[in-house]
Design a protein around this nucleic acid. Sequence first.
DNA 1: AATCCTATGTGTAAATTACATATATCTGGT
DNA 2: ACCAGATATATGTAATTTACACATAGGATT
Lengths: 129, 129
Amino acid sequence: MPAECDCSQSECRCRGGDVRGAIQPRILLELARGPACGYDLLEALKRDPGGAEPDTGNLYRTLRWMEQSGCVKSDWETSRSGPARRVYEITPTGWEHLDEWAEVLGRTRRWLDDFLEGYTSLRRIYERI
Amino acid sequence: MPAECDCSQSECRCRGGDVRGAIQPRILLELARGPACGYDLLEALKRDPGGAEPDTGNLYRTLRWMEQSGCVKSDWETSRSGPARRVYEITPTGWEHLDEWAEVLGRTRRWLDDFLEGYTSLRRIYERI
DNA sequence: AATCCTATGTGTAAATTACATATATCTGGT
DNA sequence: ACCAGATATATGTAATTTACACATAGGATT
């Protein structure tokens, strides 16, 4: 059983149920709303209801990788007070990738629909016993 | 971008989009339909539309672990012709876990709904530019 | 001057997933 | 009789992903 399982065994495989590699589409969708720096994204993803808590290290590394692959581009912003911020924005390539992610995630949702439907009907049968 | 990406770079993070740890609930749901051995489950999961190709090694290991944790129980079946089969069936504990998985997966689906809705509306705005 | 919030990053352990391989039984064809 | 192929279970480990810990630095507040 996932996430909220409290059996603190090291062999417990009570994790999962969330979407793998979701940090990328989440970043892209956030940037689709407008430019943001890593810290902004971190805060935004924390607020995202139902979404997994983002990991700082992975977020910044993913952003650098996404820049290399052309999904986002960044510029240093020093005008504000406080430490310099690397502000990211989504590129046309990023939009393409977001489109592809949306397709894949649509398929995932359909699979979940089927699974949950199957579950519900089998559960009804089981209850009758 | 996920799954179907063909950029054969080793650093390409074009994977993901599927549900993490899904092999467990998939096994439980299959066993909820009736008893089955590992090979049966393998075939069933292959047929499952939209579901990821199951991995032989992980399937058998997961089954053994699930038996240890009480979700399933098994008996050797030697009556049939061919190699002996270890036939699994779901236990009441397994049903409880399946219920928990269904809850978690329901939340994942809601998150996907929100994501895809956000995507669709932002995409519409982007197109207009 | 100490502490907190903002901000970006690196290092690496732990967990998961993917791939390769080993073993054994039976069936059907040549 | 022998070989290929389907059935069936399992182990070993490489590759990848995720999680956790830590380092650094500017500026504001107390």
